[in-house]
Amino acid sequence: MKSSVIVFPGSNCDRDIAVALEKMQFKNTMIWHKETVLPKSDLIVIPGGFSYGDYLRSGAIAGKSKIIDEVIKAANSGCLILGICNGFQILTETGLLRGTLLRNKNLKFINKDVRIRVMNNDTKFSNKYKKDQILKINIAHNEGNFFTDRKHLEELKKDELIAFKYCDEKGNINEESNPNGSIDNIAGIFNSKKNILGMMPHPERMIDEVISNKDGLNLFSSLIN
């Protein structure tokens, strides 16, 4: 399978994601944001970081870059799109995912390993996980507080478009296990066709036992299937 990682000025998880993809045998290409042509890809990844220094709003400037028109076209024709952290913020700014990421409720940049629960394992991104499996995954963000309107929230629930929710070690989803104030503890969502996933936690940081754990690996092995 072929993957493309879009790189913006200020992206800083682009090489980590490339390592994760290549480990799973993806043929990966890095694409600079000024490019106007995307190579044919089965998966496009918008990586984490601080594109354009988070000027205006996180992801707002990157969301208007030239290559994004191509990403939107690819998404509409069914290509798989994964946005992690700043990538999730960029996807909401482009309109490919609805809702937005507000400043963390406690106003602090949070960098720690948290637990998330797999809410839907019947997707191309999550089929190697068990339903309700608890993963330990790193988060590192200042604007990760997912917010959307009531109507969209109802749709997310009804159509099983919530990918992950923050939980505690036992899988309890409550206010104590919500690190950033996200509505309904939401850590990641799909679009209605489930070919786009946006998530704040960093699965690409959890692919190696030596430096962390392997809880993120199955996301990439789900995709390669």
Binding site: A60, T100, F147
Partner: peptide, 8 residues
């Protein structure tokens, strides 16, 4: 088009 996120 750019300055405002009309959702919030």
């Amino acid at each position: 088009k750019l300055l405002v996120n009309l959702i919030i």
